[in-house]
């Protein structure tokens, strides 16, 4: 694979993922615990969401954070992510139509925000940067897109 883009996400991003995924898997554990006796399903089935929960709050967010790299250059935006399957995307600056920053409640709690880059074909996200960084990146992409 080609060279790594140098920039990373905010370190606190791991805590947002931990909470998001932990809540989802925790809910799955509760659902299986409630439903399994009703449907006469074997009790060990709960181990599947429980395993997911353990992974989601321990190593998965760290691995995910390490795999995320990005960069904004005058000609293009580069995004590289994925643990088991690495995906490296390049969006030419010339094609950027508009750029947003978004922040849900969890991200806001950690003062983080995501940058969404829209082209005529699709959109690409650089998630969970520090709030001020995200604003700067958005402004920079908008300025570069305007020039190109």
């Amino acid at each position: 694979m080609t060279e790594l883009p140098p920039r990373r996400l905010a370190p606190k991003a791991t805590w947002v993922w931990r909470l998001q995924q932990g809540l989802a898997w925790g809910l799955a554990v509760i659902v299986v615990l409630v439903i399994a006796p009703e449907l006469d399903l074997p009790g060990w089935l709960v181990l599947i969401p429980l395993g997911g929960l353990v992974l989601a709050v321990t190593v998965a967010p760290t691995l995910r954070w390490r795999s995320w790299r990005w960069d904004v250059q005058p000609e293009a935006i580069e995004i590289r992510r994925g643990v088991l399957r690495i995906r490296h995307t390049v969006v030419p600056m010339l094609r950027v139509q508009h750029v947003d920053t978004t922040s849900d409640i969890l991200a806001q709690a950690f003062n983080l925000a995501s940058v969404e880059i829209h082209t005529a074909a699709d959109s690409h996200t650089i998630p969970l940067l520090r709030g001020r960084d995200a604003e700067e990146v958005r402004a920079r992409i908008a300025a570069l897109a305007d020039e190109s």
């Binding site: 080609t2 995307t89 390049v90 030419p92 094609r95 082209t119």
Partner: peptide
């Protein structure tokens, strides 16, 4: 092209 992606599992 609007974007290019290289993927590898």
């Amino acid at each position: 092209r609007e974007s290019v992606t290289l993927g590898q599992s």
